[in-house]
Amino acid sequence: MTAYIVRRLLMNFVVLWVVVSVVFVTTNMLPGDFALRQVATNLELQDYSQALQEARRILGLDKPLWQRYLDFIGGLVTLDLGRSYETHRSTWAELGDRLPSTLELGGMILIFTFLISIPVGIISAIKQNTWVDFLLRGFAIFNVATPAFVIAVLLTLLVLKLDLFRIDVVGRPHFWTDPEAALKLYIIPGLAGGLTSGAGIMRLLRSQMLEVMRNDYVRTAFAKGLGENTVWLRHALKNAMLPVLTVMGFSIAGIVSGQIILENMFNIDGIGRFLYTRLILRDLPPFQGTVVIIAFVVVTVNLLVDIAYAWLDPRIRYAD
């Protein structure tokens, strides 16, 4: 087990190096740079080309590509993610400001994912091939096929037409400063994201439950006189949850990285929106740094999921 973990950790470093290189190369292929935008917005300049050179020199964009690549990697090794060209603040500080919003939205999404997908999956399996099952499966298939932003549009329409509450959020409310406003802000994107990320889980859990119910130990459980509910929840659900956990691991990684579309749509100043605006502004250091951090979280979560998997199910001790 230890050897397995060590090997996986080493592999993760190679993976992160791939990510760092890909993000460095592609961001430097983008047309235009921050200096260009800076100079272009300054209308008082007399000599553009000289101002451009000066701006590039200040930002360090005049250095050759290989040197910037080495600087970037050197920074990462010392956990220095660079500074924003625009605000001159460190990437860590910028991310720290935005992490709460992303976690609030992500937490909301996660709660809805659990609250909706697990009961739906269980009920659908227990009531297999009844009209309840068909209805719930239809619901799941609809959510798989509908982008989160369309669900968000539908929910917004619902709120507006039924006049459930007024969506009049000003500023950036948090759950600990203004719970009511925060709830108004996060509930629609949270539900939309939860439905989308839960859709796959509903279908997976249903098929897993039905698969598990065919096992001998389930028949034994029934034979020794256990009640229907006990068997479904204690025996079937527990064993059906393993693959579901893997999928959950992926969604948690996705949630931490921020929801670019939902955050943009609802003006939530989180990490996803930050990434998007940095890319549009060509504010490269925070963009690159954030992507590397997210990739780090993703590979780490995947590793943890695999370890948890091997630990939960002793039959799996990966040889590969």
Binding site: V15, L16, W17, V18, V19, T26, L30, G258
Partner: peptide
Amino acid sequence: RVVDGVQAFPPLVLLLLLVSVLE
């Protein structure tokens, strides 16, 4: 490892990055 690297990106971020290569 390259495959792992590509999959470690949030998909939409990589997509945004790639399509931004042209103005």
